[in-house]
């Protein structure tokens, strides 16, 4: 009996050790919009450093899922733990998670009344209380990284879509996030601008950033993802390594989806 408990403890401890490595833990999570059941019993663990691509037909709940991770959407049942902080209605926890998790949106959502530099320094100055000068240095560093330092003093409206999205990525990075969420970052872009944004994202992946990316860019998934998750009707239908996922899909739904997006 005492041995059993000690064994359990050992398991528990090892679990805790693993959970040190766990960036996001979602268990039994459900979400409804009114009576519409958008997310159904989502269970998912993201290790630190993992790059996950989430795909699926429109309305499958994939955007809602990643928006739940920084509480842009509220879940009604189950548990979401990000970096050891559980997301509840406690505002302090939410703000803590949000300042650790970067998010890039489909429509960039840059602040049009601020210059690029001000867009980048705003959160570090007001949330992290970084001195303005340091924040600007960090901002310029990331602008160099996304290869548009010369645009620092312009306004978002003066930039192309691809440049705006790279600014948006840099803006998230300025908060030194440990996890990055991408919500269809290339869907609103002209084809010739998709590459510049994907290149930025690939660079980020190579540096070991934990990334969750909702996208239909299957090339990107094959190049950097170590897991692809396929969602349909609010559920995780299939997940696998990219190679297996694309070459050997198990579920009929996945096969249909892949044939539709890779067919042409």
């Amino acid at each position: 009996m005492s041995q059993a408990t000690s064994a359990e403890r050992a398991v528990d401890r090892s679990h805790m050790q693993v959970s040190d490595e766990i960036a996001i833990q979602i268990s039994g999570m459900n979400k409804w919009y009114g009576t519409f059941h958008v997310l159904r019993d989502i269970n998912m663990t993201v290790q630190r450093g993992e790059r996950i691509v989430i795909c699926g037909p429109s309305g499958s709940g994939k955007s809602t899922l990643i928006r739940c991770i920084n509480r842009l959407e509220e879940h009604q049942a189950g548990q979401i733990v990000v970096d050891g902080t559980e997301l509840t209605s406690d505002l302090k926890n939410i703000d803590k998670v949000r300042s650790e998790v970067g998010m890039v949106f489909q429509h960039f959502n840059l602040f049009p009344h601020l210059t690029i530099l001000e867009n980048l320094t705003l959160a570090p100055i007001w949330v992290r209380k970084t001195p303005k000068k340091d924040a600007e240095e960090v901002a310029m560093h990331y602008l160099h990284k996304v290869k548009i330092p010369e645009q620092a003093l312009k306004y978002p409206g003066q930039l192309s879509g691809g440049q705006q999205q790279r600014v948006a990525i840099a803006r998230s990075l300025c908060m030194k996030p440990r996890i990055m969420l991408f919500d269809e970052p290339t869907s609103a872009l002209d084809p010739e601008m998709i590459k510049e944004v994907l290149d930025t994202m690939i660079e980020l992946a190579e540096e070991g950033m934990t990334m969750l990316c909702v996208t239909h860019e299957m090339g990107f998934a094959q190049a950097v993802a170590n897991r692809v998750i396929f969602m349909d009707q609010g559920q995780i239908v299939e997940q696998n390594e990219p190679k297996e996922f694309f070459n050997n899909p198990k579920s009929e739904r996945t096969k249909l989806f892949l044939s539709q997006i890779l067919g042409h």
């Binding site: 920084n70 509480r71 842009l72 703000d95 803590k96 949000r98 300042s99 998790v101 970067g102 998010m103 949106f105 959502n109 840059l110 602040f111 705003l122 959160a123 007001w126 949330v127 803006r171 998230s172 908060m175």
Partner: peptide
């Protein structure tokens, strides 16, 4: 959403 996501 962008403001929220930045932790403001």
């Amino acid at each position: 959403e962008a403001a929220d996501a930045l932790g403001l």
